[in-house]
């Protein structure tokens, strides 16, 4: 047999569907529902974007002036590339939406970076992410996020390069990717 014949035979054989177990999808969905309960996914059918913005708007409108309390954070070592810290700096309760958000400020020290953003599940891993703003005096980059309690996976994008500072807690997911972990709430 030639390679072409083997290739054709393999393609035909391997691309043929195997018989589907009629109960398989139901079994998967039972486990998915159990996982959803465990993960406490929001119980709403509202589009995610609209809901998130609404919550954020409520959170900010609720007068979370504690954003300005960032000065209580202990400063990291200046000039150390990729040093990052995070701290919860305020709470907001949007009771009508049954969601509690905490305002979390992420700090990233890198005096040589030209652009720093953070991507994570909280911003749907958007290509541009959430841009951090640089303080001209300290060279520290920062962004404030409104996050639910729980463990959030995220990464920084420094000048277009996905970056996880070595000092941060990391997690290797089933898909092989490595993420930084941010614990919010209890």
């Amino acid at each position: 047999m030639s390679d072409v014949e083997i290739e054709r035979w393999l393609s035909d054989a391997l691309r043929s569907n195997v018989a589907r177990n009629p109960h398989a999808a139901a079994r998967i969905m039972r486990r998915v529902r159990a996982a959803a309960t465990e993960l406490s996914l929001p119980r709403t059918s509202l589009p995610r974007h609209g809901r998130r913005h609404s919550i954020l708007g409520l959170a900010l409108a609720a007068g979370i002036g504690s954003i300005t309390t960032v000065s209580t954070l202990s400063p990291g070592a200046e000039g150390v590339r990729g040093r990052s810290t995070s701290a919860v700096i305020g709470d907001s309760v949007a009771s009508t939406l049954r969601d509690t958000l905490r305002l979390v400020r992420l700090l990233f020290d890198d005096s040589t970076a030209r652009h720093v953003a953070v991507v994570g599940g909280f911003n749907r891993w958007g290509a541009s992410g959430t841009t951090l703003v640089r303080d001209a005096g300290t060279h520290r980059w920062s962004a404030t996020l409104a996050l639910r309690d729980g463990v959030h996976r995220y990464a920084f994008v420094v000048d277009g390069v996905r970056t996880i500072p070595p000092s941060m807690e990391k997690h290797r997911a089933d898909d092989g990717m490595v993420y930084a972990l941010l614990h919010v709430g209890s």
């Binding site: 996914l41 929001p42 709403t44 059918s45 509202l46 589009p47 995610r48």
Partner: peptide
């Protein structure tokens, strides 16, 4: 997007 917004089904 729908799943993450809570529509698990």
């Amino acid at each position: 997007e729908r799943v993450l917004s809570g529509d698990v089904e």
